[in-house]
Amino acid sequence: MIPAAAGHPGFLSPTGVEIAFVLVGLATLGAALVTVTTKQLVHAALWLVVALGGLAVEYLLLTAEFIAWVQVLIYVGSIVVLLLFGLMLTRAPIGRSPDADSDNRWIAAGVAGASAAVLVWVVADAFRTTWIDLDGPAQGSTQATGAFLFRHWVLPFEALSVLLLAALVGAIVLSRKDRGTLPGKDRGAAPRTVGGAAPGDDRAATPAEDGEAAPDAVPEAGSRTDREGTS
């Protein structure tokens, strides 16, 4: 431990990479704090962009180039856009919303502060005399990443594509508007003049869904009568 520490400069003579890391880290941490405390929901998503972009810069400073660009592409490019879509689709208020935080925010702050204190103490004490050697070839360059990913991690990589497919199908199934099960039952109670006109209207309104709506119609009617018969 002591020889390892003696070979490196201490906290008092930081290198340029360390200074950059600490500055970008402070910006990242500040953006993360604003993300979880701001009252404006859309601003939270935009500050999340700053936090995730700062983390991408940290990956670059740690010589993990490929992960940095993946971070920019997937997190900043798609996940934040998805979150913004979600905010828009749930009609989140644009301006300040005073009830963005729940009532137990002081308990949450206490828990987070206590865990931060304990973890910072443990981590700083454990890795006080440990230095990362950033010299030599970059360990996360695209070439190195491709080599280890497709030489040692091919099977998890392929399994991941199956998982992404499953997530895609699941998201479509979950978010698809199920015509006929819930709204159909409620619509049956509402006063309708002609029963046959209702599906016709739907089909005229959405001609694109003709193909998938038509085969559903017959079993839907049967199941609806079954459900009404049992209840």
């Binding site: 906290f11 930081p14 290198t15 990479v17 360390e18 890391f21 600490v22 880290g25 990242t28 941490l29 993360a32 704090l33 993300t35 979880v36 929901l41 939270a44 936090a51 983390l55 940290e58 400073l61 740690l62 979150l83 979600g86 905010l87 749930t90 989140a92 009830d99 963005a100 935080d101 729940s102 137990n104 925010r105 308990i107 949450a108 702050a109 828990v111 987070a112 502060g113 865990s115 931060a116 973890l119 910072v120 981590v123 700083a124 890795f127 006080r128 440990t130 230095w131 990362i132 950033l134």
Partner: peptide, 29 residues
């Protein structure tokens, strides 16, 4: 680079996220 810098930054980010999970009311937040 000192290993404590990224480790401590990760700890602090995790606890900020922990606060957000516990304190936020909107599901997307």
């Amino acid at each position: 680079m000192h290993l404590a810098y990224p480790a401590v930054l990760a700890v602090l980010l995790f606890c900020v996220g922990l606060y957000g999970v516990l304190a936020r009311r909107n599901t997307i937040l």
